[in-house]
């Protein structure tokens, strides 16, 4: 199904110069953000997702708390999160396995959003840097990645062009 959609999108996409520039910038900047978030955690020996997981609210809170409860599981979660962020970041910047990277990024953002949704009546210990109601920047970034999935650029500017061939 996905590959069919890919074929269709490849056929119908023909971006104007500015449309393409905007999409490419969006891809690279989101990649930059992911890469930095990942590296910052990687180089901080004290970083752990434990506080974030324990602060989770809403219907999936039990699941996120259980991840934090077991030190072995927590280590795996921390490892996957850090390297997931770095790999997605590199994928988006370089345009390598771009679509998979975007989907991977959406999965990570999905977890972040669902663990801390800014819904009514949910209060968090960790302060938020802005004011949000239902929609927050995590959700916007997630939807932006969806846009990038639907309007791919990796085979125009990106290593995907070298690996998979060109879409012009």
């Amino acid at each position: 199904m996905l590959s069919l959609l890919t074929c269709i999108s490849l056929f119908i996409m023909k971006y104007s110069k500015w449309q393409f520039t905007a999409l490419l910038l969006l891809r690279v900047l989101i990649g930059w953000h992911f890469l930095y978030e990942g590296l910052v955690k990687l180089v901080n020996p004290d970083w752990s997702s434990i506080g974030y997981l324990l602060d989770s609210k809403w219907i999936l809170a039990g699941f996120f708390h259980s991840l934090a409860a077991n030190p072995a599981v927590l280590n795996v979660v921390d490892f996957l999160n850090v390297w997931g962020l770095i790999i997605v970041g590199l994928g988006l910047i370089l345009g390598v396995f771009t679509r998979i990277s975007a989907i991977g990024g959406m999965v990570l953002l999905g977890f972040y959003f669902l663990s801390h949704p800014p819904f009514l009546n949910l209060e968090y210990v960790l302060p938020s840097e802005g004011s949000y109601l239902i929609v927050n920047k995590t959700l916007l970034e997630l939807i932006s990645l969806w846009v990038l999935c639907l309007f791919p650029t990796g085979r125009i500017i990106g290593i995907d062009r070298i690996i998979f061939g060109v879409t012009e």
Binding site: V28, L94, I156, I162
Partner: peptide
């Protein structure tokens, strides 16, 4: 030309 386009975002890195 294709190589250059493929690697065009490397400077961002």
């Amino acid at each position: 030309r294709n190589m250059l386009k493929g690697l065009a975002t490397v400077p961002f890195l």
